[in-house]
Design a protein around this nucleic acid. Structure first.
Length: 568
RNA sequence: CGGGGUGUAGCUCAGUUUGGGAGAGCACUGGCUUCGGGAGCCAGGGGCCGGAGGUUCAAAUCCUCUCACCCCGACCA
């Protein structure tokens, strides 16, 4: 491609709309432009990288025997009503009506549509296992789209769905996809980690997320360096390394604690460590039943764990007015003693001697509360977030925590959708059975951002070879060298994807632009060419510069290309 | 949804406090010089100052309403 015939509108300054590195660099490099909040154009450069990712995904999915299809973005409400998700899916599901007043939505995911397809077209166990996938647009009306492609509303996703005759088959399909995902992310040249994860709105019981390790990640993952255990913190069991001293229960004592609201305030006021204070949170379950959740002051509630404890019944935090009406005290002075509602207690309070609770009366707390004595728990469970210092649930060694960007997620769905939608086949034994399903997603456009988050320096993007929009940039630094560069361009372009910077620009401009957009190899016609007829090859990632004669040029390029591919 | 912020040229922004000429740098067009890390000079083109309404002799600037975008939060007891 000749740059004068290409559209690569680079920017010298960071656009004011961008905050994160990948967002800034993708805008500055002319890869993407915003159309509306969370909705983007892909310009030629961005489109090329996106297609690279898609092709890697496609190649590996096909290799695993999955079949590519294409499903619609617009989906009828009827299908979503069959599974109950028309009501259960939150506002992220963009619903609308057509001219006949029929309900539709933009597909945030395609379980319903694919299950409908398969129940109509697949009737026999002989046709199983079956894995269907597509690479297509999705729309999720996110509360807060942010960071450019990292959390967009419209985005490109690869979603795959497996259909098996039984759980054993699902295990195999799941394992196959797990391995396929590892191959895909490895091929993309990313540092990533597979972790155990929460299943969320998709459902099912087992799932793994594939996390690209990067500081800007929205997820926290816990990792055990010792045994290899890794999970999303939402799922990590909280196993404390502390043990409580044996201490006789002391008599309950009411104390005046004026104006202290947070657990921190209480601790400071009483001169106790934060860990000695407890906090009592009030939640409303299914919009009617209030419950209390009691945690240590230095612990945080993990709502995914609460969700599990509530067996999936929807809940939300109580509003201040509701708390006042129910208990007669303001938040900050709440405690489990004397409450007439269900009390969920985090297991860290077991054997925890003589702690502080709110008195359910403004400006008062109790000292020396003890679980089972001062109050009774309806349920004792692991409800808190794991934190620094906690131990691996697998081997007992300390966990470490790191940030990640979720680029892939695989689920064992079981028969959740096939049962709801009566998607069945005839098994070998003549019995009609629901398909046993799995689903497997990759955020293709997010992967582009994640790549940039992980591969950049002060000058711009450093693309892994496999994802670079072009592999070689050809830079004639002087007008007189352009003819020579044209000849070279024809030659190199037959082996690599070459971008010829044939603009009448000064050298500095060309260097800056090519560094910014992250093309892995630059072939420069400059001083050395003028003086000795030699070409300079610059490796974007390492900054290494090599002078070569024309005879050796292609040989050295392919050697460097190989090195770059191997590294990753 | 709550809180904060921003909308002025393609981009980054000044001007708004205290009402009166729509500006700068970069980008773009033409010319000359320059040519290994975002050049210099000269001459140009480009604006519904986010939108609507109001106050005023006069509004980018003051008032009201609205729209869009960005950031933080939605675990606070």
């Amino acid at each position: 491609m000749r740059l004068t015939r290409f559209l690569m509108p680079t920017l010298k300054e960071d656009p004011s709309e961008a905050e994160t590195i990948s967002h800034k660099l993708l805008l500055r490099g002319g890869f993407i432009r915003k159309v509306a909040s969370g909705i983007y154009n892909f310009l030629p450069l961005g489109f090329r990288s996106l297609k690279k990712i898609e092709n890697i995904v496609r190649e590996e999915m096909n290799r695993a025997g999955a079949l590519e299809i294409l499903m619609p973005l617009v989906q009828p409400a009827e299908l979503w009503k069959e599974t109950g998700r028309w009501d259960a899916y939150g506002k992220e599901l963009l619903r609308f009506k057509d001219r006949k007043e029929h309900d539709f939505c933009l597909g945030p995911t395609h379980e319903e549509v694919v299950t409908d397809l398969v129940r109509k077209e697949v009737k026999s166990y002989r046709q199983l296992p079956l894995i269907l996938y597509q690479i297509a647009q999705k729309f999720r009306d996110e509360i807060r789209p942010r960071f450019g492609l990292l959390r967009g509303r419209e985005f490109i996703m690869k979603d795959a769905y497996s259909f098996d005759a039984d759980v054993k088959g699902l295990e195999k399909s799941y394992e196959l996809m797990y391995e396929t995902y590892e191959r895909i992310f490895k091929k993309c040249g990313l540092r990533f980690r597979a972790v155990e994860a929460h299943t969320g709105a998709i459902g099912g019981d087992v799932s793994h997320e594939f996390m690209v390790l990067a500081e800007t990640g929205e997820d926290t993952i816990s990792i055990c360096e010792h045994c290899g255990y890794a999970s999303n913190i939402e799922l990590t069991p909280a196993i404390s390394s502390e043990s409580y001293p044996v201490e006789a229960p002391k008599p309950l004592e009411k104390v005046y604690t004026p104006g202290v609201r947070s657990a921190e305030d209480v601790a400071k006021f009483l001169g106790f460590p934060l860990a000695k204070i407890t906090k009592t949170l009030i939640y409303i379950v299914e919009e009617r039943e209030p419950i209390a959740v009691v945690l240590r002051g230095d612990h945080e509630l993990n709502e995914v764990k609460l969700d599990k404890a509530l067996e999936g019944r929807p809940f939300r935090m109580a509003k201040e007015e509701e708390i006042l009406a129910l208990i007669g005290a303001h938040p900050g002075f709440l405690g489990p003693r004397g409450l007439k509602i269900k009390i969920f207690v985090d297991r860290a309070l077991v054997n925890f001697p003589n702690f502080v609770i709110g008195a359910n009366e403004d400006e008062y707390h109790y000292l020396n509360a003890n679980l089972g004595d001062t109050f009774q728990a309806t349920l004792i469970a692991d409800l808190r977030k794991a934190k620094e210092g906690d131990l691996c649930p697998n081997c007992g060694k300390p966990l470490s925590f790191t940030k990640g960007i979720e680029v892939g997620h695989i689920f064992k769905l079981g028969t959740k959708y096939s049962s709801a939608m009566k998607a069945t086949f005839l098994d070998r034994d003549g019995q009609e059975k629901p398909f046993v399903m799995g689903c497997y997603g990759i955020g293709v456009s997010r992967l582009l951002s994640a790549t940039v988050e992980q591969n950049h320096d002060k000058d711009g993007i450093i693309f892994p070879w496999a994802l670079a929009p072009f592999q070689v940039a050809l830079l004639p630094l002087n007008r007189e060298f352009i003819d020579k560069a044209e000849v070279l361009y024809y030659k190199l372009n037959s082996r690599w994807e070459v971008l010829l910077d044939d603009r009448d620009e000064r050298p500095g401009v060309k260097f800056k632009d090519m560094d910014l957009v992250g093309i892995p190899l630059q072939v420069i016609l400059g001083k050395a060419f003028q003086e000795k007829g030699e070409f300079e090859i610059k490796v974007r990632r390492t900054g290494e510069r090599i002078l070569v004669t024309e005879e050796r040029l292609e040989e050295v390029i392919s050697k460097k290309a190989e090195e770059l591919q191997r590294e990753l």
